[in-house]
Amino acid sequence: MSSVRGRRLPRRIVQLLIGLFMYGIGIAFMVRGEIGAAPWDVLSQGIALHVPLSFGVITVLTSVVVLILWLPLRQKYGVGTILNALLVGPSADVGLLLIPVDQPLWLRIGFFVIGLFVLAAATGLYIGARFGPGPRDGLMTGLHARTGWPIWLVRTGLEIVVVAIGWALGGNVGIGTLAFALLVGPLCQFFMRIFDVKLPERAKAQEE
């Protein structure tokens, strides 16, 4: 079993890093779409309007705060969890520098669609690498474990709260926000099946 796990480790590391970079690029495409961002990105947008920090830096700081909230929930950090918190924000800033602003509506819709698919594929890559959940996913599962509330209810509640705060601060809420909420789950599930790295059961349990 250990030999199988060892042979797959390089692939898992590469898959994790590519997934985290792509995740930030997907966020950047959706933000540049300007038709409504994903809930946590609405929050980062809103905060960015009030502090002299980039979108990516705020994303990192928000992730750190979320990880602090893991402590009373007794969630365990993985290597992927920490790297997610540290790398997604900078890659989003790279994407925001490269993707042009103030484009025609048809192109902005295209940006959003590209971003949604890139983000979903990236989610499949980094979760499929089995190095631990992202900060926000861990908060969701931790609250589910501690409260007994259904996953969908916890996720919906969290996202309503962050969207409301982000919108109050000036973040971009629109049809894209609704489209993200409806489509991201099925898309992520599809890509997770494609990119899941099969591990021996004992090794898999240790990773989780």
Rank of each mutant, 00 (worst) to 15 (best):
C188N: 06
S2Q: 10
H50T: 11
G138R: 02
Y77L: 12
L17D: 11
K204G: 05
Q75A: 06
M140G: 04
I68Q: 08
L87P: 06
R108V: 11
A38V: 02
L86C: 07
L187Q: 06
P104L: 00
L169Y: 12
A181M: 09
P200S: 11
D102Q: 05
V184P: 01
L125R: 01
Y126K: 00
I160C: 15
V161G: 09
P90K: 10
P186Y: 08
I82S: 08
F29Y: 14
A122C: 05
L20A: 04
A145E: 10
P186Q: 07
L169D: 15
V154W: 12
A48K: 01
V66H: 07
R108I: 07
T62M: 05
G80F: 09
M30K: 06
P52M: 03
A129P: 00
V57C: 09
K204W: 05
V113Q: 01
T123L: 07
L71S: 09
C188G: 04
A92G: 06
V154S: 08
I127C: 03
P52V: 01
Y126C: 00
L98F: 01
A120T: 04
S63F: 09
L125I: 05
P39K: 12
V113L: 00
L183P: 04
V163S: 13
L158F: 08
V42M: 15
I13V: 12
I68C: 10
D102M: 02
G170E: 15
A37C: 12
L49Y: 14
P39L: 15
M22W: 03
G36H: 03
M1I: 09
Q103T: 09
A92K: 01
P135E: 10
R5Y: 13
A203L: 05
M192K: 00
G24L: 01
W40Y: 13
V197H: 04
R74I: 07
L67K: 04
I114F: 00
L182A: 05
S54V: 00
R74F: 12
V162Y: 01
Q45N: 14
L43I: 13
W167V: 15
A179C: 02
I114V: 06
R146H: 06
G128A: 02
I160Y: 15
L17C: 10
K76P: 05
H50N: 15
M192G: 06
L73H: 08
K76Y: 10
W149I: 05
F195R: 00
I165T: 12
A38Q: 09
A181Q: 10
L20T: 03
T123K: 03
L143I: 11
L153R: 08
R11C: 07
P10N: 06
R74P: 07
P90E: 09
V173I: 15
V118K: 00
F191M: 03
L9G: 13
L153A: 14
R12S: 14
G174Y: 03
G128Q: 01
Q45I: 09
Y23T: 08
G138F: 04
G78D: 10
I127G: 03
